[in-house]
Nucleic acid binder design. Structure first.
Lengths: 316, 316
DNA sequence: TCAATCATGCATATATTCTGCATGATTACA
DNA sequence: TGTAATCATGCAGAATATATGCATGATTGA
């Protein structure tokens, strides 16, 4: 879309490259063609007079100097973001456009209310919404296509690269419920422990996904290795599989079951209560920006609403 | 000449503007046309979505936000320079081109030897030499047309703006000698004090020049107000005036008298011994750059040579 | 009041920069 | 081992962005 002036577009491209280590993916994320990315990186090195990249196999990777350079850029860009934030605060002028990103459930439950609220409080602002996976959200933040993302916290975000570039705010912990076929032996129980389902066939997401990592973590804490029978990408698919009696699954509380009557949702009891942490992520340094602060406030308010609604339901 | 990638050319332009507060002068210093500068500044504000400039009379000036923004940029650019320096050190790759600036005497006595030396140690490097007044040297440094300048230290360099953007290294203190007509009553003395010349007509540089400030400072410390009879821009002109018997003057030791026989040069004795401090100036953060470090070492060596040569002459 | 100074806007000219395709190199797979 | 797939890059043409030069309006000083 629109590329904010920022430092230099070539430097922005380099930073995205440093997180993908892949010209084609960088091109896709930045919106350039692969040859444009290649040309930009080449031109950048020529102008700086420093070799940042070397060929490796059929790809390219950063040199030691390149990594050092990118690390330095991260600090500079953070300072730039802080400057933009303080300048916006000082002048009272907001950016013309504001991009939000998040995965499906977050987009529905948290981002949609936020966008609606901003549309009324800031009618002149162009608010953009992008649904994307967590990793992609981070890349979109980096390439300044969005300014705030709501994602599921995961181990991969503890890396130094991520820490140097982003700042997180916890919004809420979203527990995972068990979903059983309506005719399951435990369908009558009010709550079910994972131990009770240790031998059932499980339906989960593909390996290397954030959800799968949570799934595995919950069982490893019990010392149990679950039998993963099927893999699904969408919740609807998983629910359909469960309805067909192919196995059982875990569904975040925030995700709605939909109007399905051949499955039941039950609370998880026992020591291992899996949950996912939903966080808001912004570029490091942009925390002080008026739009960001306002958005975070609204998000936390919405999250609080969800939590208190749950406690109310809990008491019924 | 060539504009290094650096931050964004528009930001570079804004920084130069902040030191000139004048579109036309900014255009001249950056090498753009005035309308290009105007367009760049307008475009920058549009992209940032922040008003940096306001019209004032027939000119424009920075807003409060604009000044805040520029101050923040100074810090960022310093960090950028440090990053470039450390990357160059790490990779062992030097810049392709290296610009030196200085005023006439410095250019002759300090920069010429430096350039010559670099030409032998770094034959592949394109070394550029620019002769310019101190203030202009600073502007050239800022706009990255040169990378190191040798100038006379002055009061104007103690401003916060200058301190935020540049770093200085003292090279040598250059005493000012008295130049008298050959038939002057004191021409026979080995040294002359300023008190003895308090009533003579003086020839000096134009007001608001660095030299003039030194001149005034020397006399004010004596409580004497000298009679300034004439003003000259070049030393040659001043010497010619003195030779014609129009008055007396002060000439830095580094400046050569040339082959003139109708004037004499005498040491200044007494409490007020005027001297000018010659310093090397670089952009803040670039101190660690290999080329800068090498150049400063050579300059200090040359300065040391000049000083020791003087002590030797002193003993004769 | 006139001239000078200064910034800006516009049309044209000029550079830059991107895209799409072709190429060469490397890797995965059968 | 051969074949297909993947990946980065180079090149010609196209699209975009950017600068120039002159004209204009606004302000200041003589």
């Amino acid at each position: 879309m629109q590329n904010i002036c920022m430092i230099d577009p070539r430097i922005s491209t380099l930073r995205v490259f440093s997180s993908t280590e892949n010209v084609a993916k960088t091109a896709e994320l930045t919106g350039y063609s692969p040859s444009a990315v290649s040309a930009q990186l080449r031109e950048l090195q020529r102008t700086l007079g420093i070799d940042l990249l070397v060929k490796e196999g059929r790809g390219v990777r950063l040199t030691a100097t390149g990594r050092h350079f990118v690390a330095g850029l991260d600090a500079i860009v953070t300072q730039w973001e802080m400057l933009m934030a303080s300048s916006r605060t000082a002048s009272g002028q907001l950016q013309a456009s504001f991009g939000l990103g998040g995965f499906s459930t977050a987009a529905a439950e948290l981002l949609a209310p936020l966008a609606a609220r901003l549309r009324t409080t800031r009618p002149e602002m162009e608010v953009r919404l992008v649904e994307a996976q967590p990793q992609r959200c981070l890349d979109l933040l980096l390439s300044e296509r969005i300014d705030l993302a709501v994602i599921v916290a995961s181990q991969s975000q503890t890396g130094t690269l991520v820490q140097a570039r982003f700042e997180q705010t916890v919004l809420l912990d979203d527990p995972l419920d068990v979903v059983l076929p309506a005719n399951h032996r435990l369908a009558g129980s009010k709550s079910v422990s994972l131990e009770q389902l240790a031998d059932d066939p499980w339906i989960t997401e593909a390996e290397h996904s954030v959800y799968r990592a949570l799934f595995v973590a919950a069982f490893t804490s019990l010392g149990v290795t679950p039998h993963i029978a099927h893999e699904a990408v969408e919740w609807e698919t998983m629910i359909a599989f469960i309805g067909a009696g192919l196995g059982v699954g875990l569904l975040p509380r925030l995700a709605t079951l939909g109007s399905v009557d051949n499955v039941v949702r039950r609370r998880v009891s026992g020591v291992a209560k899996p949950s996912r942490r939903i966080v808001a992520v912004v570029r490091k340094g942009s925390m002080g920006s008026p739009m960001i602060e306002e958005s975070l406030k609204i998000l936390q308010q919405t999250a609080k609403g969800i939590i208190s609604q749950r406690s109310a339901e809990e008491l019924e």
